[in-house]
Amino acid sequence: MNIGVLVKPVPDPEQYNSITIDPETKRLNRSGVPTIVNPSDKCAVEAALKLKEKFGGKIVIFTMAPPDGREKLMEVLAMGADEAVLVSDREFGGADTLATSYTLVKAVEKKSAESESFDLILSGNESADGATGHVPAQVGEMLGFNHLSAIVQIVAEGEGRPDSLTVFQKIENGKNEFEIKLPAVIGVTRDINKPRYTSAMGVIKAKKKPFDTYDCEALSPDKSRIGIEGSPTKAGAIFTPDTGRKSEELSGSPEEIAEELVKRIKAIGVTINSGGGCRE
């Protein structure tokens, strides 16, 4: 079973206070902010590793990122993935989810043409920074694969390469059960598993695993569908809402102030008990 996993480096949530928004371009300025592998993408890698343990095959990781994204791919290779592809070119910069999905699809198609086709594409349901949840569905549509999002469980039964998977989707008051025919794209949430720890042996092996970098020339994309030009999402005005609280200063003797306070509290519908405490 050949599985592709889409992985995104995102700013470390513990450093969110260092992220600024460029008022001109309305884009996040992440420079200098340490990144981590998007947490739900790590769960997707873990899900892929579990499927590989049962059915065999290989796992290829794809990420679209600046050149320093290599470091995060090494981390995922150290978890146990077999190969990695870094999709990186200045022309891909500024992409929204649609242009990102298109670019990743081009990379998946190129990798499929070079070796074997993929039975399954996994990704985190959404990224910790953008959190749109668009990519799994968009990638599924563009590849012409079945696709499902918000998956919290994948049931892998039987022997040999499966034709379909039973999956459970999280909904507000429970779960939906689906049987999804392969090839498919599945977006998983962080509830699906606890990713394994990276081992020392994993780190040692990571550097010896196949690693490709695809630039714009390698993918030969339709340039009207990549980067800023290929991104229909346009950020509107950015402003900081006024979160200040209305305040008023009461004057008079302590008794007068207390009387005025009681009057105002009663006016908003709160009853004051003589035994102490309040009730509405």
């Binding site: 720890y197 990276t198 020392a200 780190v203």
Partner: peptide, 18 residues
């Protein structure tokens, strides 16, 4: 080395959780 930094990060993740 890069490998040593990766190892430190991996061990740190384990240690901070466990």
């Amino acid at each position: 080395t890069e490998d040593q930094e990766m190892l430190r990060a991996a061990f740190r993740e384990f240690i901070e959780a466990e």
